[in-house]
């Protein structure tokens, strides 16, 4: 064996050993030892703890009863925002029902000995036979405020999208909003695959860099605008961050006044500035080229400046509108 391959094998072996040591040292640890989760015993109903406040006469058995069998899920839920409110700072008797506030009264489930499908509880699982509308109503009983005010009749609601399709209530998967996936773009992108792919194009807003999310512009719970935008109009949504385009300007550019998407594709494009078409073709969708003949080939080299580089914007810089007295052609 020559020197070169032997050295290469040695390096690979050394790196593999270092990688293995690094993984062991880098594993997460807790300073407080965690109690191992007790395996669920569906055939043995949990005994009621002393002083248990829940009443069994109205069908509710209390969160401690649920915890007796569903310890692991309970502990995860207790770490979530909803769990902390329900279990520690309930604001009304409904919230005080904790688990049963959402899943329904547990008495029948407990008396049947627990187990899947026993007692008529709503599980919110994928194969839960409970109609989506009924499942969602459980959430809406509390969460009809703010962003959900237009949920009924919205695009997602009319297509029977369940709250639990996007949200995971029982444990924190994402840093915010208890999403089903670690990030918003993964959650939305699980259905909106094309839009997710668009954000990977070369000209894009910083979604994949983590500086924006889908909900920076959209309200997935329903809105009055098409495409579920948060603001009253598409342009108002863009002006939230790009207020320099808001105007009004002395000389307006009509397609800008109507809609930014006349020229731009906000989800991503392979053309600069997220344009739908490359310049000058994007401009030539409305403007004829009789004034500035734009030929990239041939002996008329003077026209090439209209198709190269920044093209039309070399001169027409104020394309979103101009406030200059001599800016009627958007050159000043």
């Amino acid at each position: 064996m020559s020197v070169e391959p032997r050295r290469l094998l040695g390096v690979i072996a050394g790196a593999a050993i270092a990688l293995g040591v690094g993984i062991v040292l880098g594993m997460p640890f807790a300073s407080r030892a965690q109690q191992p989760a007790a395996p669920p015993a569906p055939s043995a109903p949990a005994a009621q703890p002393a002083g248990q406040a829940a009443s069994t006469t109205d069908g509710y058995v209390g969160a401690d009863t649920c915890k007796g069998c569903h310890e692991e899920a309970f502990q995860k839920f207790a770490k979530t925002r909803m769990g902390r409110i329900f279990l520690h700072q309930a604001r009304d008797p409904r919230e005080g029902n904790a688990c049963e506030n959402c899943h329904g009264p547990g008495k029948a489930h407990v008396e049947a000995g627990g187990g899947k499908g026993k007692g008529g509880l709503i599980t919110f699982a994928k194969k839960d036979p409970t109609p989506v509308e009924k499942r969602n109503q459980v959430c809406l009983d509390c969460h009809t405020k703010s962003a959900r005010i237009f949920w009924k009749g919205s695009a997602h609601e009319s297509r029977d999208v369940a709250c639990t399709n996007c949200h995971k209530v029982m444990e924190d998967v994402s840093p915010k909003s208890q999403l089903a996936k670690p990030t918003e773009i993964e959650t939305c992108g699980s259905c909106h695959i094309q839009k997710r792919a668009q954000t990977m194009r070369s000209s894009h807003m910083p979604l994949r860099e983590g500086k924006m999310t889908c909900s920076s512009c959209h309200n997935p719970h329903g809105a009055v605008t098409p495409a579920l935008l948060k603001e009253p109009s598409l342009n108002d949504t863009c002006f939230t961050c790009h207020a320099e385009k808001r105007g009004p300007f002395l000389w307006s550019h009509q397609p800008v006044v109507e809609s930014c998407t006349n020229c731009h594709d906000p989800h991503g494009s392979n053309h600069e500035a997220m344009l739908k078409l490359a310049k000058p073709r994007i401009c030539q969708q409305c403007h004829t080229e009789s004034g500035h003949v734009s030929r990239p080939f041939g002996r008329d080299t003077g026209s090439q400046k209209f198709v190269m580089g920044r093209s039309c914007n070399d001169c027409h810089v104020a394309v979103h509108g101009s406030n200059h007295p001599a800016g009627f052609r958007l050159t000043r």
Partner: peptide
């Protein structure tokens, strides 16, 4: 692996 340690 060595350096990226997550501490909880």
């Amino acid at each position: 692996g060595l350096a990226s340690a997550q501490t909880k």
